[in-house]
């Protein structure tokens, strides 16, 4: 089974056809996707700026992260579900789109950056919890996260202008 046949099978799924054929389905999914992305970016921005040394509404970085991360994760899950449905509606075209491919790479890079942060600096958070600005390693994590998520949003918008199949 090649990638092409898999993509075509996804395209042929009844739900993919419904999204293509129902006039309101695609814009509704897009709206939910934008809502999810603004929630992901909006909450991550507050945390990333705190990691960079810009104060949030509370001093403790640990409490701020635990307060906002659930919102980020729920919104991210919504973004993945809506994004997957948008992808399914035109799987071969999205898979062939350069901006879409780069967007997935940027999301993966943001994930790796987060994993590194949680495996290193976050373990020692008790030592810098109230520091403004935090240690350099923490600031690097915050900066990379902001940069990568900004790239994700820009690439996502570009897909709408470069995708081969428009309907």
């Amino acid at each position: 089974m090649t990638l092409e046949t898999t993509l075509q099978q996804v395209y042929d799924l009844p739900i993919s056809a419904t999204i293509r054929e129902n006039v309101n389905a695609f814009p509704l999914l897009e709206s939910l996707h934008v809502l999810a992305i603004t929630l992901v970016f909006g909450t991550i921005l507050i945390v990333d700026l705190r990691l960079l040394g810009v104060g949030a509404h509370r001093r403790s970085a640990d409490r701020l992260i635990r307060e906002l991360l659930p919102f980020t994760w729920i919104a991210f899950a919504l973004a993945v579900v809506t994004g997957s449905l948008l992808f399914a509606s035109n799987a071969p075209a999205y898979a062939a789109n350069r901006e879409f491919q780069l967007k997935l790479v940027a999301i993966a890079a943001a994930g790796v950056n987060m994993l590194i942060f949680h495996a290193t600096a976050h373990r020692k958070i008790a030592g810098w919890d109230l520091d403004l600005p935090p240690p350099a390693a923490v600031r690097v994590s915050g900066f990379l996260s902001l940069l990568l998520w900004t790239v994700v949003i820009v690439l996502g918008r570009w897909i709408g202008f470069t995708l081969d199949v428009l309907f």
Partner: peptide
């Protein structure tokens, strides 16, 4: 969209 995210957050 980035500015909307700032408002939403």
């Amino acid at each position: 969209i980035l500015a909307i995210a700032v408002v939403i957050g």
